[in-house]
Design a protein around this nucleic acid. Structure first.
Lengths: 219, 219
DNA sequence: TGTACATCAGTGAACGCGCGTTCACTGATGTAC
DNA sequence: TGTACATCAGTGAACGCGCGTTCACTGATGTAC
């Protein structure tokens, strides 16, 4: 991570403990959901007293905010790595699926039920834009699959007229709607799968995921 | 609701108070999320003492379970009414959208982030099947839009081979995949919209929803 | 119509709990001369 | 290399809070004769 030359032993120790606190936090979230996260419980699990954690985080909200930021960051990084290794929408989609299955609660912290009062800090919207940009890149790259002048244009036109959200990305109008569509379709499958709404239904969610990914090729 | 002839005043009063407790519960959930639901807070808001609520619900978990059941029930009823008034997928889809926007937290209680330990009671899976059946009805009714022998068959075949989840519904294979697909696609748009992931993006989520609904016509 | 009894809604006190957070303090680690 | 000081991790006690839940009780409402 940081250059060990400009890093004192104390600083190294600090960031090590901070990392362990976060690890235990994720374990707790995985076990009982984000709302059950408790500083005291984390401290106890680490063999420390509760107040000790205040050396590392300003409070519970501060910790949660950092976990959310880390979750966004890790998805953005995974996308960036995937784009480097295997450009295109397929690589991105399967990276997303792997990332989601790896830790469902992390996925839900990003895309799940929002807590009514809570507002994410400003910098995560920047990371969200990074994620969207990776998706737009992948969609712009792929040639349009639909025959010219097909019926899909209602959404295309609307999005072309409201393309501020693309953050100045130079993607053509068709790519805008393809990116948005693949995002919502894959999220639809993933979130229902992770929430367990397919369990006991007998079919393989991966097949559905693949079909949805395939579906945007002809968009 | 119940026949007033076989209903004593006490019973009427009871169900009235029970209903008000649930109302306040929904208000609390809307204000601070389901995890913040507190019996004492509800009681205080109703001008009662906390323990009084134990006359009406066995405890907090019992209340939440009933709220979840009611949420499923209300969606199933809305679907049934829609199917009667205006058969077809369009009516169902817009009923779903209306139902979701009417109370986002209710939507999330059904389709949102699951609490790791929690298991819904058996009877809600029955209601979930009702909801799915309504969707299957609507999808079976509509003639297949795709040209015969198109490429969509990978999912069709897989679902036809694992059609237990349809609960003995007589829908053709194409209708199975259409139902599943429209479910996940609409959920994808709705859940991201309700979670606020489109706010500040400038475009109208309703247009995206309509495009996704339209997309399954050619399936 | 009136009396005796049963039912049941709601209260107030109490229990134990775990939470987030503050504060004054100890003891170890690093820094400056 | 050794001493004096500053930094900082971690402790333990304490505060106030709201939670779910139990219990014995009061008082009103309904029921049976």
């Amino acid at each position: 991570m940081a250059d060990p030359r400009t890093t004192t032993p104390r600083e190294r120790y600090r960031s090590q403990v901070r990392a362990e606190i976060k690890e235990r936090a994720w374990e707790q979230i995985a076990a009982a959901g984000a709302s059950a996260l408790s500083l005291n419980a984390i401290a106890k699990q680490m063999g420390m007293s509760g107040p000790a954690l205040y050396r590392y985080f300003a409070g519970r909200d501060d910790l949660i905010t950092e976990l959310i930021r880390d979750a966004y960051r890790s998805l953005a990084d995974a996308f960036a790595a995937a784009a480097r290794a295997e450009p295109g929408l397929f690589g991105l989609a399967h990276t997303l699926r792997r990332w989601a299955l790896e830790d469902p609660q992390r996925y839900f912290l990003v895309y799940g039920t929002p807590v009514p009062g809570y507002h994410a800090p400003d910098d995560v919207t920047g990371i969200a834009r990074e994620i969207m940009a990776a998706l737009l890149d992948a969609c712009a790259e792929q040639p349009a699959g639909a025959p010219a002048g097909s019926t899909a244009s209602a959404l295309d036109e609307h999005l072309a007229a409201h393309r501020e959200w693309a953050g100045g990305h130079s993607a053509p109008a068709a790519a805008l709607s393809r990116a948005l569509t693949v995002w919502t379709r894959l999220h639809g499958v993933l979130s229902l799968e992770l929430a367990g709404h397919f369990t006991g239904m007998g079919f393989d969610p991966a097949v559905l995921f693949a079909a949805e990914l395939e579906s945007v090729r002809s968009l």
